[in-house]
Design a protein around this nucleic acid. Sequence first.
DNA 1: GTCAATACTTGTACTGCGTCCACTTTTATC
DNA 2: GATAAAAGTGGACGCAGTACAAGTATTGAC
Lengths: 196, 196
Amino acid sequence: MSGERRSGLRERKKLEAWYTLRAEAFRLFAERGYETVSVEDIAAAANMSRSTFFNYFASKDAVVLDPEPGERDQWLTLFDRPADEPLWDSLVELLLGYAKQISGHLTTVKQLERHSPALGEMALARTHPFYRDLRDWVDSRTKPGAELESALVLNVALAAAETAYSRWEPTVDFAEFLRTALECLERAGAGVARRG
Amino acid sequence: MSGERRSGLRERKKLEAWYTLRAEAFRLFAERGYETVSVEDIAAAANMSRSTFFNYFASKDAVVLDPEPGERDQWLTLFDRPADEPLWDSLVELLLGYAKQISGHLTTVKQLERHSPALGEMALARTHPFYRDLRDWVDSRTKPGAELESALVLNVALAAAETAYSRWEPTVDFAEFLRTALECLERAGAGVARRG
DNA sequence: GTCAATACTTGTACTGCGTCCACTTTTATC
DNA sequence: GATAAAAGTGGACGCAGTACAAGTATTGAC
């Protein structure tokens, strides 16, 4: 029985540790709120040392925000858009597609925000690797001289998506959030001046 | 000689302490960068104790972001807009007007960002009291049922302004930034879809 | 199975932010 | 000048994050 070369015991344990840490963190956050749970608490609940926590997550925020192992490969498939598709249309597809991919996580985090005001303040769109990839992808599509236009289109799209997210009540269906997000994106794309 | 009841010695000393702290902080930040200057350093440079620093500023960030004493009164005058003016037009005037009011500060902070990456990450639009006032003002103008629309319009305007700010090179004239900001606002207001 | 290289875990110590609180000094009022 | 209010101070604390040295487990080669 030739052992599987790739996924050895080491890899499996690492994955297990990652998921355990995040699961315990979310459990504690849901119980007592993000701000009153320390990294020490999370590590203890996961039967690991504080040092080990920081081996897996660069910060306390990261345990909430970091993508799952392999998640990046999933969202990268979204970046396969027709070369002649207008930038705005691509962005709408990308943002909605990504939201669908992480719908479960989005719902969880949104519910945590109810008891944990600090979570609402996180500069999600700045730090998160998806948004880094998104910006890079936009840059790669941008012709020289159009950088300002591209940045504007991207930021408007992000603003529309964030508007829908910020007003979403996680008690209602996730599909309802998607509908709102699409509505915001369409309105923003069409122009918000001279409406009300 | 009835002493001036209002601006007594106490008030003047408070103002002086505030300005001294901020001046020393900015001086040190410019010298050594935001992240490598501690609150302790700032307080020492201002000949005050660390405790006193936190009497004046709620956080290290705040010494950069907080409005000057009396600044709020200035920006509040901007909120006097015709009742029938379209929301978008009001927002354009408000954002550009406020930018003009704090042009000096904006330039200073932008230049600090060159040596201090942490400053670029600050969630300005969330915390800053001007944006709180702005959101409240928008809310006060919003008819029941139009909350989503209003939030979207506001966030798109903020995205446009932030786009101009993020791409502004503070070596060039501030007027150039204003021109770019206006351009971004106009494009965003007209709609960014189907352009390229 | 032995063994050494490698990767992961842990404890410890440190810096810095932010909070709390008791205490002193300064300013305003009479 | 006595007194009360406001501002400044010093010390202790908890927690996030970093650095590093020492320990433990996994791996692959023999």
